Amino acid sequence: MNKIFAVANQKGGVGKTTTCVNLAASLVASRQRVLLIDLDPQGNATMGSGIDKSELQLSVYDVLTSEMDPRKAIVATESGYDVLPANGDLSAAEVELLDMDARETRLRGAIDRIGDDYDYVVVDCPPSLNMLTVNALCAANGVLIPMQCEYYALEGLSALINTINQIQQVANPDLKIEGILRTMYDPRNSLTNDVSEQLTEYFGDRLYSTCIPRNVRLAEAPSFGKPALTYDRQSKGAIAYLALAGEMTRRHAANSRPAVAEAS
């Protein structure tokens, strides 16, 4: 079974798109087949993967609104992962989906058609709760939540968890929190450490041990249309996302391992 992650946080500026692009590249480096779905009308994950959103003939908009075969819109990247790209057209889909049948499960239907082609599907959600985010949460089997260790981030996290619980009850009972990822992490900051301790206490092993540091190379890479791993493999940001990919794949390998019966 492939892993479908919605990378979501209703608070903007937490490194959500950075996480999607760099996690996709790092999972490929771990020999996984990866599809990145850009579900944000800003198209930042598309551009950050080296795809010019202004030249797209087909995009995730067409897949959602006309139920087109996703393979027609998927673009391969130099970093080894595929992208179902987005541009400003996707803003119209937020409104158009409201009048469509199965509006919450359009993305799920698209992924079902191509799921066997990939080991991991990573969905970059917009920084708001709208029909696009609902589609991502209905399609996913896990939510990866990037967040900064600051006070207001905790408030946003609470709202997102409530949303996840509602989706579980109404549309996707298999949905769970895959993990909490601390981004822009600076251990010299006392507030960072305080919030980190609260996250550890509340989420336990759902909090990734990997932390993503503030890193200049990580911030520069999108302007070159590359993940940090392609832009500067030795940068602290690239190394951190490689560590995250390793932590994720080890978790999944452990969870999928059959239980050993005790000797009688």
Rank of each mutant, 00 (worst) to 15 (best):
P85A: 14
N255E: 13
Q148R: 10
L144C: 15
A254V: 13
L218T: 05
I74D: 08
R33N: 06
D62A: 06
I164L: 06
T18K: 12
L35Q: 02
G109M: 08
A25P: 15
P213T: 00
Y208E: 07
A261E: 15
C211I: 14
A93H: 03
L229P: 03
Q42I: 09
T230S: 13
L97H: 09
R31T: 03
Y185E: 00
A140H: 12
N193Q: 07
K176T: 05
V134S: 10
G12P: 03
Y118K: 00
M68L: 11
P126F: 14
L39K: 09
H252L: 12
A221S: 15
V134E: 14
S30N: 10
D232T: 06
Y118N: 00
M147Y: 08
A253Y: 11
N165Q: 06
D112P: 06
A76C: 09
A29I: 07
V134T: 13
D174S: 12
V60H: 02
A243T: 12
G13E: 05
R206I: 09
A25Q: 12
N141T: 14
D82I: 00
L154W: 01
E247Y: 05
N165L: 03
N215G: 06
L97Q: 11
G12R: 07
S190E: 08
T105M: 13
L242F: 03
H252S: 07
E262Q: 14
P127R: 07
T77D: 10
Q166G: 06
A86P: 00
N215I: 05
S209N: 14
